[in-house]
Simulated scan of single mutants.
Amino acid sequence: MSRSSPTSTRTRPPSRRAAGTCPRSWTRHVPLGPDQAARRRGVRRVDFDQVVRLGWLASVGSVEVDFKRQGGVTTVPLYDAQEIALLEVVRPSVDWRPVRTTAAGRRSPLAVLDPSPGWERVLLAEVARIAGVVRAAVVNWRRRHDNFPDPVAGTSVHPQFDHRAVVAWLLDHDKIEVPPDRHSPRWSRPGQVPPRSGSASTTRG
């Protein structure tokens, strides 16, 4: 998916009232800081930091916040709200439920995973899991659409595709949708989480 070049600006810390009026639509490419991104995703900051460590999200820019009472200027990375919203959709091999429910002070379930380049290559079967279809449907898409991403590795029988390129293609062709904001009224009751598709395993299938 397209990404704007990183930017950096200096600003004062937002007031609580201003922070509460930030846009909540996942479908917009709203830049979010790590703390805000973690809240939007419904996880702890330590879990979000693990997502970044694994390379599943990359900063789209940064902002310099002037904490005059706390040691001066701090550079805060910014992340795309839409990419954050899509995490559970595009990483179906990860069990996100324990990530959302682990108590404060406990180690993140994502800490056991290695930031392997293999996470960024997907087989046809995993593309199908992301889109919620059978493998034959993805094979058909490759046959019908000339702009389907080309393989970056693998063999003619088991081609491997770049994860980001596949996700961008699926979005552009309406094969996947951006989930609703977890802060919307639909998901406002305690303990309620949106339904998810995919495996209940943190290992790659």
Rank of each mutant, 00 (worst) to 15 (best):
G132H: 08
T202M: 15
E88M: 08
K68H: 13
R135I: 11
R129Y: 10
R100K: 09
W26T: 14
F48P: 04
S5G: 11
D174P: 08
L86S: 00
G132C: 04
P117F: 01
F148H: 05
A103G: 11
T11D: 10
F161M: 01
S4V: 15
T202Y: 13
S5H: 13
R144A: 12
S15D: 07
V157Y: 10
R16A: 13
P31R: 04
A18W: 09
W56Y: 09
P151M: 06
Y79M: 04
V30C: 11
D49L: 06
A136S: 15
M1F: 04
T155L: 04
S156I: 14
F67G: 08
V94I: 15
R189W: 04
H173L: 05
R91F: 12
S108Y: 01
P159E: 03
V90H: 08
H183P: 09
A37C: 07
V157I: 14
P117A: 00
S156N: 09
V112F: 11
S59R: 02
H29P: 10
P23N: 03
T27F: 05
V166T: 00
V134W: 11
D66S: 08
I84V: 08
R45T: 06
P179E: 05
T203F: 12
T9N: 07
V46Y: 10
R129L: 13
R53Q: 07
A19C: 07
R182N: 11
S116I: 09
V76W: 03
P77V: 03
F148E: 07
A81G: 06
L57N: 06
R45P: 02
R24L: 10
R142D: 10
M1N: 09
V139W: 13
N147Y: 06
V167H: 03
I84E: 02
R24V: 10
T27D: 13
W26N: 15
D49F: 07
P77C: 01
D47E: 06
V178D: 03
P194C: 06
V43G: 00
T102C: 10
S15A: 07
E120V: 09
R164K: 12
V134L: 13
R106P: 10
K68G: 15
G33K: 01
A37I: 00
A165H: 06
L110V: 03
G205Y: 14
V99Y: 01
T27E: 08
F148I: 01
T101P: 04
A18R: 08
R100G: 00
P31D: 01
V99A: 08
T21A: 14
D66E: 06
V65M: 04
R17M: 12
P92E: 04
V43D: 00
R69N: 13
P109T: 02
A38C: 03
E120C: 12
S201P: 10
D35P: 07
A128R: 00
Q50E: 12
G191P: 04
